[in-house]
Design a protein around this nucleic acid. Sequence first.
DNA 1: GTCTATAGCGGGATAGAC
DNA 2: GTCTATCCCGCTATAGAC
Lengths: 206, 206
Amino acid sequence: MIKDIEITDVQQKIIDAARELFIRKGLKETTVRDIANASGKNIAMINYYFRSKDNLFETIFEGSFEKLITRVFAHIDSDLPLFELIDKWVCTYYDSLHDDPKLPLFVIYEFQKNPERLIRKIRLKNPYQTFGKLAIRINKEVEKGTIKEIPVSNFILSVISLSVFPIILSTVAPTLLGLIDDQYKELLDGHKKFVVDFIINAIKKE
Amino acid sequence: MIKDIEITDVQQKIIDAARELFIRKGLKETTVRDIANASGKNIAMINYYFRSKDNLFETIFEGSFEKLITRVFAHIDSDLPLFELIDKWVCTYYDSLHDDPKLPLFVIYEFQKNPERLIRKIRLKNPYQTFGKLAIRINKEVEKGTIKEIPVSNFILSVISLSVFPIILSTVAPTLLGLIDDQYKELLDGHKKFVVDFIINAIKKE
DNA sequence: GTCTATAGCGGGATAGAC
DNA sequence: GTCTATCCCGCTATAGAC
């Protein structure tokens, strides 16, 4: 029993250090030496528990992908009134990525560099299941005449674009604009509110 | 004279091969051996003309950054009526990246991995110069009562989000959705039109 | 399970012949 | 200017002692 806890603890230390490094520096620029140092372990331990660096990476990627998808689609099935749902959807996403803003770029970039290999590591949600409820609700609002008629998939892609892209830019904007992190966080906070209004105005029927 | 042409030709072959590889595989995963093979030259030639792989990369990055910025802000100073300007702005961007859709992700990712080094390689446009004319035009339309009052920087960031992010996703969507490239291009073409209407509806005053 | 030492490969860069 | 051969480093992975 004590042994099991010990093992889990070592694995967890390695995973935590690896995740931080992979997300910050990417697969190729993170070495097992880096991970060994950061986790207080050594190279042999990493290979003992995870067989190879690539295998450890796949474990990290899988978890990161799940985390991102969960955040991007949080509250999409909520029963709130549609406009409040949009507010909650966008705001929750913005707020949830204040702590690791590099997650989306990491997931997209690494996936794009190795799609065939990584596609097998992730469980894709059924889009009908994920978007189905929102689609029905949008159609109802269209019938009621409160919003314009819009293709649901284009709408979802647009909400995601307006949410994810500013977060991605937040990892480069401070350097580009010469801002400190706190200043950009304030900007993002204002932008979050702007985006919610922007989306609602775009679909609302006067 | 003939010598000059010869030199330029070799350099150009190396640059072309390097750009394609760097954009597709990234800095770290592209080797000078790859570049040598793809350009029909050899490693020694690359170091002879460009001193080092890193130096060659910086040259490529600089050009790619310029190209992206030019495309993202093409027509932003146009004299077209505002709604037509938005249409032209968005559509031109979508159309211009059909040929190298990996450019935005490449620029953002590599910059984010090495901001301090790469910031020195790029000329940043003066935002007042770039956005100033658009800002004035937007304010005029607000006064005329044709559009809502909106902060210009948030608006620009939103237009860019709606333009760039779908292109970034286009490099992973085919694998994720099981589509062939042509199918996704059709989807993007439809999305382009959706986005233009979306933006105009978002700011228009009824 | 943990560590040290090292095998073995692939990388960037360059010396030196032509 | 161009090429071949090679240096030397840093990487992943593992053998083997404890």
